[in-house]
Design a protein around this nucleic acid. Sequence first.
DNA 1: GTAGTTACTATCACTTTGCAAGTGACCCGT
DNA 2: ACGGGTCACTTGCAAAGTGATAGTAACTAC
Lengths: 145, 145
Amino acid sequence: MTDDEKKFGTCPIDRGLTLIGDRWSMLVLRDVQRGFTRYDQIRTSLGIAPNILARRLAALTDAGLLEKRRYSQRPPRDEYWLTEKGRDFLPILAAIGAWGRKHNGGGALTRQVDVATGEAIRPVVIDANTGAPLGTRDLRLEYPD
Amino acid sequence: MTDDEKKFGTCPIDRGLTLIGDRWSMLVLRDVQRGFTRYDQIRTSLGIAPNILARRLAALTDAGLLEKRRYSQRPPRDEYWLTEKGRDFLPILAAIGAWGRKHNGGGALTRQVDVATGEAIRPVVIDANTGAPLGTRDLRLEYPD
DNA sequence: GTAGTTACTATCACTTTGCAAGTGACCCGT
DNA sequence: ACGGGTCACTTGCAAAGTGATAGTAACTAC
């Protein structure tokens, strides 16, 4: 058994959730995506307590989803940018949004629009092998040897 | 402003996370998906404390992702089944799993296999309008009127 | 009637969250 | 050079949430 297996188990979902399985982390990611890269922007946007935000940002940076970028030398100021690992998570947020839109009540909702077509995106999770949306074909869980 | 907007805000991601934005809830969903529908199955599988599991199951049932089904009248025993709302969330778990597999270390990992083809699925979030994976086209956030 | 199964609830220690206030490093106007 | 403002936090402390352990309730099987 490798170190990774001991620390995190063999379930990739579990591993993912260990890093970002909480509300604030995902909302921070959402905010950074929409251009709120600085501490105070995120704080006022989310209405989160300063200590909590500092902890989340440190955790996300530690986990490799965000990285600090110095945008001012004097006074020293950093903003937070998505790493590739962080950018890779954004589609999942979009999928959660689509689920929320379908199932969690009405009213006016923000949405993401494809700049080229002008249409609101409709995120769907498919299997890249078959092209079929998940949930339309039978699946089986397979354990490692 | 509607009641929904007051209660949940206008961001569908936020709304989604309000209902299931925690680690245990998602892991419970994963377990139910793989056939662990009864309290003790889930508890031993996850190694979760009984009071915590009871609370999560009640919350997920309340939120409409699970429903109780009586499988024995005497003694009265219920198991937990996914509702449509719950099943709709499963592809997101698969996407989180794919992200975890790519970014969170190696070792032996469980995976989901398409029963018909025998191949491990590769979950990808696409925009149903264009068919393009999210992250490959420019998006813009649009606020409600 | 005693042991086992299943699904919890109750108690309580411990951890995390979050509000409010304060700190440090700087810039800018007068 | 001194007061005010901005930005990115840190500290202190109360409140809420989490989780290990133990106990309860409603049975069944022997």
